[in-house]
Design a protein around this nucleic acid. Structure first.
Lengths: 234, 234, 234, 234
DNA sequence: AATGAATGAGCATTCATTCAT
DNA sequence: CATGAATGAATGCTCATTCAT
């Protein structure tokens, strides 16, 4: 009644082979996501695209949602890498960082839909362990980058850098959710009543981000002047 | 368990709201949502809570998602009402508006989960007509309130008020998505590695919103000084 | 994405129509059980055999197991009917009752496999309500028939009739489990080492049942003689 | 959670038991069964509890069901050991044997669920060889003990001892199936309509067993008197 | 012998939606 | 208008089993 494995794939015995297989599954999911941003494809499709059996997916991930979360995490860390590089560049300032980040994101627009669903993903079929690990790793990056920002804006309160990052990220995701027309509205976006939503997403986002970063810089400056260095929040 | 809180509508914004049945269904869904923010309850539950038959729900709404969207819309318009009132108050400024809005939202925290899912709802089982109507009504409010803001910050570019509102809304939703711990993490939020996410959501949001509004005000002021009045973006 | 009902069957609106439909599902399951005593067929097969859609089965039963339990219950009550008739016949005694019961069972041999699985069915996917109702109805029959038996064996302790029935039923099911060769042993049953299991099931069962009933009768007689009438157990 | 209780085997009945590994696997399964009488645990759990790899289980057993069957067999043979000892005791009679057997079983209540499923296990994923061996060994014990009983009840027909054993066993298992409330009914057993099922299982079983054994004794006596020694049946 | 990675069949169940009554 | 019976698509996941290492 239970059928045996017919053509088992080459076995991933060593840890590095396992990481490779895991990565293959992630890549497969990511590739499917490109065609279907809503991610409404069965696990079997992911498996097929990765060249493994359905069950194998569950050897590397606890659930379908955990696969998707892992794809999201990968993309977020890539974004953080970009931010880190931008901040590390000589002469980096709010404007240059924002420009570089936006350029990256504009080339990875399939980042948004998944990111927008991240919160609800955590509410569904993601084990506490998995969610915790995800958040922990995220927190580490946030802390690291936050420190870099605090060094850039001396006087910014402790934690102010991370807060600025969170706010920026929030603005980015939130604004995309407002601005990106859903498929069913693509056609009617040209109507006059939709004018208000025909915004230049990247322009508006860039402006708002710069407002946020400038305000942080100004606050840092003010703090420096008055000698204080504590109290958090951007 | 679900006592349909027949919240008297602050304003009868839409003509179709006149139907008591429709309102009852919305109220039922809203009440259910209070217990289950993820909204993973069957249409039948909504119908039961509303005291109607399952089929009746489809007499008033095109699909399950349209019901949820309507609940969301109702809540958004309530929020807009509050913003409108705050702006209309004498001596209104960024700080007072933000304070009032945050107070409202903190009393309607079940606004967030639904709002966070709004974008993906539009991608699923919402007819173009319905989505268009939703967006159109939203756009109208946005335009109206945007004008009020532009009057408050004279010199703010045309459309700058609406953009400021969108940005604010985006920040609010996006930051909530980062800050609100999912159920599976409620318990572990006290761990040290989660410290960075134990933010004071409302404080941080308020600060960031004020940064945004202040920047808009400053930009408006600058624009006024230089005589220009065009170019959009906040 | 969710497809509508294409060719809905005639609707069972009246209670009697519903009973009919329920009965049809039961009959379908029973018929499948005849071919596959282990009952390892999907719910869909039952539905098809009953001429309804899979979902309809779940309109009438809480789970697959509840369908099977209902089939079993039907068969048990049929057996109880036979026992009742046998007991009601003039000149009924242990021998005649046992003979009649065995004749019935030998004509309904697919009663055994299901009956043998009844206990484990109750452990799996049967709601408390359903199990309780099943047991309650069973208990009623047991009590009724028990009284008839007690009238037949005056002096039998209160409850002694029901106990005798339970014991008889237990012996019947238990002995079948020992005696009925599983499919995989059908062929090898003729080997000498299997001799001991090549019993004449019905003969041995009949003899043991009569022992049980005679002993009960004797005990009843003894009790009568000594005047006592209480204490239970057969 | 599952501390493999390495119960020292009372007797090394089968040669293959010499394998420590095999014994460890059986002990692990038995231990798991104590916590989950339904035996709905994966093979991997058994392997882990036994301290071996999943594949190793299949080196010693042909299938999952064969492991369970082996556990059952072990328990049955332990029961037979007890019966043998009870019969061998000086002054052994039906009452003393029944008492000793019941005491053993009451201390090993997890014997019942598995025993009750034995028949259906044989229908699923047990090789003919395995089933045959199981039955053969069972038959041997049955024959041996049957002879002892026939010696105890001289005049009992040939095979009458084994038949009496089978009947007794059947009654035991069958009555347990009726009497043991499934988990989902544990709570509601106190209700009045459940009264008829609130039987004193061991008392009722003991009484019925004694009826069976007494009847066998009496029949043996009668047979002796009339000189006959043939005809089987208890 | 032992391991454990890989396989993939297998299915109950839910529930949004329709439409006969 | 309202009802609620009927539909059936849609799929995540488990886990027994195999066999390359």
């Amino acid at each position: 009644m239970n059928s045996p494995p017919i053509q088992p794939r080459i076995r991933a015995v060593h840890p590095e082979d396992k990481s490779e297989r895991r990565a293959a599954i992630l890549a497969a999911a990511q590739s499917l996501l490109a065609d279907d941003p809503q991610g409404s494809f069965p696990v079997e499709s992911v498996a097929q695209a990765a060249g493994v059996a359905k069950g194998t997916v569950y050897l590397y991930f606890g659930s379908r949602e955990e696969v998707m979360l892992a794809v999201h995490e990968k993309q977020v860390h890539e974004l953080f890498d970009v931010i880190g590089d931008a901040l590390a560049a000589s002469g980096a300032d709010a404007v240059s960082v924002v420009r570089i980040v936006l350029r990256h994101i504009s080339r990875h627009r399939n980042f948004y839909p998944l990111a927008g669903r991240c919160r609800s993903m955590l509410d569904t079929k993601v084990s506490t362990d998995c969610a915790l690990a995800f958040k922990t790793r995220l927190g580490e990056r946030l802390a690291d980058l936050g420190l870099v920002i605090e060094r850039m804006y001396p006087g910014l309160a402790a934690g102010g850098g991370a807060a600025l990052l969170m706010n920026s990220y929030a603005l980015m995701i939130g604004l995309w959710q407002q601005a990106d027309p859903p498929d069913c509205l693509r056609e009617v976006m040209k109507r006059p009543e939709m004018k208000i939503f025909r915004i230049d997403f990247e322009r508006q986002l860039a402006a708002a981000l710069i407002d946020l970063w400038d305000a942080a810089g100004r606050r840092g400056a003010a703090a420096r002047r008055s000698g204080s260095t504590k109290r958090s929040n951007a």
